[in-house]
Design a protein around this nucleic acid. Structure first.
Length: 486
RNA sequence: GCUGCUAUAGUGUAGUCCGGCCAAUCAUGUCGGCCUUUCACGCCGACGACUGGGGUUCGAAUCCCCAUAGCAGCACCA
């Protein structure tokens, strides 16, 4: 009962039932370790996690590193960190490069069953035959010959490109994508960062082998895998294994950030981006750095669900989820962008006490000393403006001598300010202003903020009337913050 | 070209399987109002959609057909 209360986020959005899930599930998240996780990955990771939590069972992290060309040795750790940040309930982790011998054994069995053959056809040639629905000469080789050739493959008897193992499917299948797809290949280079290998399984083979070996019951993946699912069924049939339950969700278009691992890496290398957590990227670590909470990511993904329609990811919806989480928590401070110094005539010294959070007085206040001159945003002053209220301080009238404004104390009455429809704006005492830069994906705002902001390092605060920001660093030179959202 | 998947408001989503309770849900967004010493939060209200055309039926968002659009696969990538 109490557990259910603490899990209200997970129950906020109910995902559709999965068939055959009554007695628990075993699911997996299977990224390629080519870089850190981004929002695209988050959908698969969160959806599978939600189902495991809903039905109970195992959640396997399977690192799919069977293509040495697409392995970044640092990504293994990054993936684990990112999943931890997301708060997923991973129960076990396997790495495919540790399991090559398992795949080799199963391949031998598959050949023995007549479900696969070793093909020496030139790639282009095979493609032509495939289009014509005709068998290549290797397809009818006796099992013994295939086994010999398979052994020779493993014994380094062939070089890259000379042979491949193909799954026997149905050459008459109307979908050319189904016809005798490859299952193993030889790679002379590059070396795999973790193992010494020469013969590599292709995704469709290693995935089936592991889903079976690991007892995976349900698979939720993008619909770009629909063809792979159909291909994989041929392997299940050959081996006589039970097929998991599949769900394919639609494509998710994401605008405004860079997601391609190769583009990100290139940008980092040439200095365009500061790193994997550059706020212009769509990685989990970039979101984290910008002040997006992992629960917001999770809730946004659950709201999207597993529909098979292609969708476009909405940053607004993510921000709305994040605002729900962050608003009650974030302390409030003044940040004055593009500050201008003004002197207010006729005002006594004042001490302002502003609440750290407007709906939680218990959190206390911050203290700002007024002594005659303050910083305000230059954008607040224009000849149309005749009165402003400095928030938590007092009212100020502005009189204009042509282009030149002068500022005069106009009393403390909030009612007066309301009656005059005066804007209530943020301000800073000159001697308490700490230089501050707010970085947004579009550019930066420079100005000043309250000195106490330095105590909020790595936290999300709200700069009143500006938006939520995450305090990234505080040095003697000033404070750097990342804009989260309004 | 071949194969397959999808099509509900700006965005996401419910309803579609088993046609009527849907003059279509909820969230987000935008606008307006209230509250408020923030342009935040909260509250109230408004705006806004069944891709098009046929068919079946007493009745279609829901079933069928065609069209259109988008997406994916046809890699010795995952």
């Amino acid at each position: 009962m109490f557990a259910a209360l603490s899990e209200k986020h997970e129950h906020k959005k109910v995902l559709p039932d999965l068939e055959q899930a009554g007695s628990g599930v075993a699911m997996r998240f299977a990224p390629n370790p080519s870089g850190p996780l981004h929002i695209g990955h988050a959908r698969a990771a969160v959806l599978n996690d939600a189902y495991v939590k809903q039905y109970g069972g195992r959640y396997i992290l399977r690192i799919e590193d069977t293509d040495p060309k697409r392995v970044d040795p640092e990504a293994y750790a990054m993936v684990v960190e990112d999943l931890k940040w997301l708060g997923l309930g991973i129960t076990e982790t396997v790495t495919q490069s540790d399991r090559l011998s398992l795949y080799y054994d199963l391949c031998r069995q598959l050949i023995e069953r007549g479900g696969a053959y070793v093909c020496t056809c030139d790639n282009e040639h095979f493609k032509e035959l495939k289009q014509k629905k005709t068998a290549c000469p290797c397809r009818d080789q006796p099992v013994e010959k295939n086994l010999m050739m398979w052994t020779k493959m493993l014994d380094h008897g062939y070089h890259e490109g000379e042979v491949s193992v193909r799954i026997k499917t149905d050459l008459a299948n109307p979908d050319p994508a189904m016809r005798d797809f490859p299952a193993f290949r030889i790679l002379d280079a590059p070396p795999h960062p973790r193992v010494k290998a020469h013969v590599y399984p292709l995704m469709n083979f290693s995935v089936v082998a592991d889903d079976h070996l690991l007892g995976v019951t349900h698979v939720i993946r993008g619909k770009d895998h629909i063809a792979n699912t159909r291909r994989q069924k041929y392997i299940y049939d050959h081996m006589g294994w039970q097929v998991p339950v599949y769900r394919h969700y639609g494509r998710m278009g994401i605008e405004g950030v860079v997601l391609s691992t190769s583009q990100m890496r290139a940008g980092i290398n040439d200095g365009t981006y500061t790193g994997w957590d550059d706020i212009r990227l769509g990685t989990m670590r970039a979101l984290a750095r910008r002040g997006i909470s992992p629960d917001a990511v999770r809730n946004a993904m659950l709201a999207i669900g597993i529909g098979d329609t292609d969708i476009s990811f909405s940053w607004d919806n993510l921000y709305a989820e994040n605002r729900k989480i962050v608003d009650p928590v974030a302390n409030r401070y003044f940040f004055v962008p593009d500050p201008v110094e003004i002197t207010i005539g006729g005002a006594q010294k004042h001490t302002a006490h502003a609440m750290l959070h407007p709906s939680d007085a218990a959190r206390g206040t911050r203290t700002l000393e007024f002594d005659g001159t303050v910083l305000i945003p230059i954008s607040e002053i224009s000849p149309a403006v005749t009165m402003i209220r400095l928030k938590d301080l007092f009212n100020v009238t502005i009189t204009w001598d042509h282009e030149t404004p002068s500022f005069t104390y106009a009393g403390e009455s909030l009612a007066d300010a309301r009656a005059a429809k005066a804007r209530i704006i943020q301000w800073l005492p000159v001697q308490q202003a700490t230089p501050c830069t707010v970085l947004t994906p579009e550019g930066e705002m420079t100005g000043a903020c309250e000195p106490a902001v330095k105590n909020e390092l790595k936290k999300v605060v709200q700069f009143e009337r500006v938006g939520f920001v995450k305090i990234d660093s505080a040095t003697p030179d000033g404070i750097r913050a990342y804009f989260t959202h309004k």
